[in-house]
Design a binder for these strands. Sequence first.
DNA 1: CTGATTATTTATCTTATGTTAAATTTTACT
DNA 2: AGTAAAATTTAACATAAGATAAATAATCAG
Lengths: 187, 187
Amino acid sequence: MNELITYFNKYNTLSENAIKAISEICKPVNIKKNQDLQSIGHTCRTIYFIKKGVARIYYFKDDIEITECFAFENAIIARVESLFTGKPSRKAIQMVENSELIAINSTKLFDLYDTFPEIERLFRKIFEAAYVDTVNRVESIQFHSAEERYNTLLKENSNVLQRVPLKYVASYLGITQVSLSRIRGIR
Amino acid sequence: MNELITYFNKYNTLSENAIKAISEICKPVNIKKNQDLQSIGHTCRTIYFIKKGVARIYYFKDDIEITECFAFENAIIARVESLFTGKPSRKAIQMVENSELIAINSTKLFDLYDTFPEIERLFRKIFEAAYVDTVNRVESIQFHSAEERYNTLLKENSNVLQRVPLKYVASYLGITQVSLSRIRGIR
DNA sequence: CTGATTATTTATCTTATGTTAAATTTTACT
DNA sequence: AGTAAAATTTAACATAAGATAAATAATCAG
């Protein structure tokens, strides 16, 4: 749990009691490479913290698999469009490497919000930061060329390119595998 | 203030005291058509509720003006990438029509969170919903053609097309004015 | 109401990315 | 290690959207 507490502290420091309460709704999960952690069609009721490994959220558009995002060590991952609406998700979470996770039951977590405003605040801040990332992603996709987006990824998140198959990276960048390969070929 | 309270109730019903406290940090603002409500370069410390009118957030990319989003009556608008980070915003908010707004001081609002967890919860839920919208927008921009995006807008938000100049709509859709005109010409 | 400005459309040409298919390289399994 | 499967690259051609410029339509100020 230490990694998780350290992660929490970046957003909001919790009291001993709050940490204890959260600990009780967490459980460790190990997932093998390429296995789905959460499958399409189910409502998201778990927030995962990644201790080790890489996750991606993906879905299908016209039978083509699209990667929505990646998450690495010391980050959380959840299908927020389902978590916050209670609707079934059209998306799945898959582990790209053998991974160790901590599963946080979101139903129980949301109950804790009533007793621990500090926990509500913690997750408010976590998701506000994620929201900002998503706003920036809209800008990146919409107004930068595929090549610009690739170069930004290379510069700011090169571990994606080192640890994730390019076929996943391509749809994340909003282009085809062939286009990505062409862009990489230049220079 | 009635419209605002009605809007709040959709997310979280507030006690009398909480409503009173929020009311004290709100003030009415009237803005003429085409005028900027907030300008580029300043840190966002105000959340606006739109009683009447249309707002858009815009910024410049390579000297070209880009519309990030629109907001209409009974919605809030804020430059969250600045609001949640405290960094100056590269974006501006402009009113597309003569408008009546309620300005909520965000510094004071965040202070209220300490005394009123219900207010913190209210805005947590408001921004969670906005976050979900943004996640869906990423999907829309990234994996639908310009024509699909235009048709979706026409179907689900046709007031945008009725009330907003097409030159703003084009960059919102991630295309040029000329492309939008071409797409509209088909059929 | 009229002229001037601004917004929108149309036309032409260019370019980035998509599509399909094949070749090559890498990875995984026995 | 050797083979099959999967991933990546390369090639050739197609297409959607960009760029620029000009024409038309709509809006606004006096």
